[in-house]
């Protein structure tokens, strides 16, 4: 069933996470091998963003049990920036607007943070132009302040631009499809599919089966109340589209 190279990029075992002492994730097991796309679906408030942010090391989320390794390395002790430099990336559900920080300056700094040798101004410009063309973003976004005044869809494209420039080994996309028009959806999917070919592991959080037509998942997981209630192939997403989570919750409780 799994058609990746086999090597696990991300391994989550029995992960328990609390916020302010309140348990949100209650024992998650998840393996995402290199080159595979796993979709994570589930009702509002089930803990999808909590999982994504725990993986990125958000300080509000307290890991109370379990383990997470990435490329064989225990990452729970690492700071957020160290995880990023190890090759992890999350496209935010709600990206921050940061005034005065220009997209290109920021991205160049981010790229340099993970490189041995600083990229030259010329080379970086070329890279930005290439990626922005790929994502059909106007070059003017490069000199705009980070997400300030961006439309919802522009923010999401900007997340994918960052992914395309940084070329992570693990991408977690938290509802990147919400707010995107059909054309943008395709462009984003192309971006992911390109990197997937280069062995990137991907965890796609989404409410909509539509995205999965473009980024065809190897595995679909359904998260309900902090637990993975079901795991299946892309058919599972179609099934959910038909019957919703209600039926599944009922079936689980029965």
């Amino acid at each position: 069933m799994h058609n990746g190279s086999g090597a696990d990029a991300l391994v989550i075992q029995d992960l328990h996470v609390s916020v302010d002492g309140m348990p949100i994730l209650k024992g998650i097991d998840l393996h995402v091998p290199k080159g595979e796309v796993h979709a994570l679906m589930g009702p509002n408030g089930s803990g999808k963003s909590t999982l994504a942010n725990t993986l990125m090391g958000h300080p509000a989320f307290e890991v109370t049990g379990g383990s997470v390794t990435f490329k064989g390395q225990d990452i729970l002790e690492l700071a957020t920036d160290e995880r990023a430099r190890l090759g992890m990336f999350m496209a935010f559900q709600y990206p921050s607007e940061i005034t005065g920080v220009r997209v290109s300056n920021f991205l160049r700094m981010a790229l340099n943070a993970q490189r041995e040798e600083e990229i030259s101004a010329m080379e970086f410009r070329r890279l930005m132009m290439e990626k922005m063309r790929l994502l059909r973003m106007d070059m003017k976004f490069a000199s705009r302040y980070l997400n300030e005044g961006f439309s919802g869809g522009e923010k999401k494209r900007n997340e994918i631009l960052q992914m395309a420039v940084l070329q992570p080994e693990l991408a977690i996309l938290d509802e990147t499809d919400s707010g995107l028009d059909i054309d943008a959806l395709r462009i984003v999917a192309d971006g992911v599919n390109t990197l997937r070919g280069a062995d990137m592991a991907t965890l796609v959080i989404t409410h909509y089966q539509r995205l999965l037509n473009y980024i065809v998942p190897d595995v679909v997981h359904v998260l309900i109340d902090g637990r993975i209630a079901r795991t299946g192939d892309k058919q599972l997403a179609l099934e959910l589209d038909e019957s919703g989570y209600e039926a599944m919750t009922a079936a689980q409780e029965a």
Binding site: M56, D81, A84, G100, V101, A110, A113, L166
Partner: peptide, 25 residues
């Protein structure tokens, strides 16, 4: 904001500096 910038690989002090610089823009 710090978290967002750090999630792209910037150290906390780099992130702070970037935000401060941005504040003056």
């Amino acid at each position: 904001h710090l978290y967002y910038l750090c999630s792209r690989g910037l150290s906390e002090s780099q992130a702070r500096e970037l935000i401060v610089e941005g504040y003056f823009e």
